[in-house]
Computed example of a mutant assay.
Amino acid sequence: MSAQIETVQRQPARLRQGEPVRLVLAGCGAVTKLYYAEALSRLQGRGQIAVAAIFDPEAKSAAVVQARLPGTKVAASFDGLLAAGADVAIIASPPRYHLDQSMQALRAGMHVLCEKPMATSSSDADLILAVAAANNLHVATGLVRRQFPATRSIKAMVEGGLIGKIQGVCCFEGGPFQWPVASTSYFSRAESGGGVLQDIGTHCLDLLTWWFGEPHEIHYADDAMGGVEANCLVRLGFGGFEATVRLSRDWARPNLYRLEGERGSISWAVNETELVEIALKGCRTAATASFTDTDDRSRDFVDAFCDQISDLVDTVRNGTLLSGSATAGRNVLKRIEECYARRKRLDMPWLGAEDFRHVIASAETRQ
Results as ranks from 00 to 15, higher is better:
171 C>R: 09
120 T>N: 13
98 H>P: 10
125 A>K: 00
143 L>N: 09
170 C>S: 13
161 G>C: 08
213 G>N: 03
136 N>P: 02
203 H>E: 09
168 G>C: 02
186 Y>R: 14
100 D>S: 14
126 D>R: 10
175 G>T: 11
181 V>K: 01
88 V>P: 13
198 Q>M: 15
219 H>G: 11
115 E>I: 06
197 L>F: 02
190 A>I: 09
212 F>D: 05
164 G>T: 01
148 F>G: 01
170 C>E: 15
162 L>C: 05
158 V>P: 08
135 N>I: 03
196 V>P: 04
91 I>D: 03
133 A>H: 01
210 W>K: 00
87 D>P: 01
204 C>P: 00
87 D>R: 10
89 A>W: 13
106 L>Y: 11
139 V>W: 03
104 Q>I: 01
129 L>D: 12
170 C>Y: 08
143 L>G: 02
121 S>A: 14
192 S>L: 04
153 S>G: 07
171 C>K: 02
128 I>S: 08
208 L>T: 01
174 G>A: 00
103 M>F: 02
128 I>K: 00
195 G>Q: 09
150 A>G: 01
193 G>W: 13
159 E>T: 09
164 G>V: 02
179 W>N: 00
185 S>H: 10
106 L>F: 11
136 N>W: 00
119 A>Y: 06
153 S>F: 06
151 T>Y: 11
87 D>Y: 05
